[in-house]
């Protein structure tokens, strides 16, 4: 397995407000890495900076050994994909238009978009039934599936997902995570940012924990002994009774 996404000493934030303070993380092809951390730990900021939506204030991000310093568009063209939090699809467009837009970077490749749409419908049959509906009319779970399918359209080599479970009912979460688990099969490198511990650990190969802008735990899931440290990082130390 090769290192697909390497983050070294990343510092990021908004102006004087530094949210990510020296984060290093390596994700490999064919592996699913989950980055856990409670809200406010800096997860979304990390992903936005990797994708070039926010400028890095320090450190480096590289894809397949190539340092990424350019715009978001150039990083997407280099094989990066990001599913943003909040089921962020183009709500005023139909399902199929959203998928086409997902393939924007491969639009000149003959048949790439049509094949991508076929693959998307195979993966998420419900989207085919709703292909001509506006994305805003979909349920939360369906919007999340559409967001993932959209990011997969250009066949990225590294896919990052930002809290895909947020705002979804438990049964839907299971379904979505089932799909996420299957993504690594074709050698895709997946970086999943989550708050839900157990669903994530069930599908992940590696786990990293982000707290106050730094990685506090970084190990293989199988080597993770107890969940207590994770739990404390979320809910605080047990209250003495």
């Amino acid at each position: 397995m090769t290192d697909a996404l390497v983050i070294t000493d990343l510092v990021a934030g908004y102006g004087q407000l530094k949210i990510v303070r020296g984060l290093s993380l390596t994700c490999r092809s064919g592996e699913l890495t989950v980055l856990l951390g409670r809200n406010g730990a800096g997860k979304t900021t990390t992903l936005s900076t990797i994708a070039g939506l926010l400028p890095a204030l320090g450190g480096e991000v590289s894809l397949h050994g190539v340092p990424q310093r350019g715009s978001t568009v150039s990083r997407i063209k280099s094989g990066l994909g990001l599913v943003q939090e909040g089921k962020r699809v183009f709500r005023a467009r139909t399902v199929e238009e959203n998928l086409k837009l997902g393939g924007y970077t491969v639009r000149r490749k003959r048949g790439a978009i049509d094949e991508g749409i076929v693959r998307a419908y195979e993966r998420f049959p419900i989207l085919k039934d709703k292909r001509h509906q506006l994305a805003s009319a979909l349920s939360g779970g369906q919007q999340q599936m559409l967001a993932i399918a959209q990011a997969l359209m250009p066949q990225p080599t590294v896919l990052m997902l930002d809290e895909p479970s947020a705002g979804l009912a438990p049964s839907i979460v299971e379904e979505v995570f089932g799909e996420i688990a299957s993504l690594t099969r074709d050698g895709l490198c997946v970086l999943l940012v989550e708050q839900l511990i157990d669903h994530s650990l069930a599908v992940a190969d590696r786990v990293a924990v982000l707290d106050h802008g730094r990685i506090t735990i970084d190990t293989e899931v199988s080597k993770l002994g107890s969940w207590d440290t994770l739990r404390e990082s979320y809910l605080g130390a047990p209250v003495a009774e």
Binding site: A51, I76, R93, E97, L101
Partner: peptide, 23 residues
Amino acid sequence: TMIGLASLATSEDREAGALRGIN
């Protein structure tokens, strides 16, 4: 067309558009 869709999408959400590779 793709270009037309891309402008509608950018108009709706510029950042999400950039994440689909739209300049």
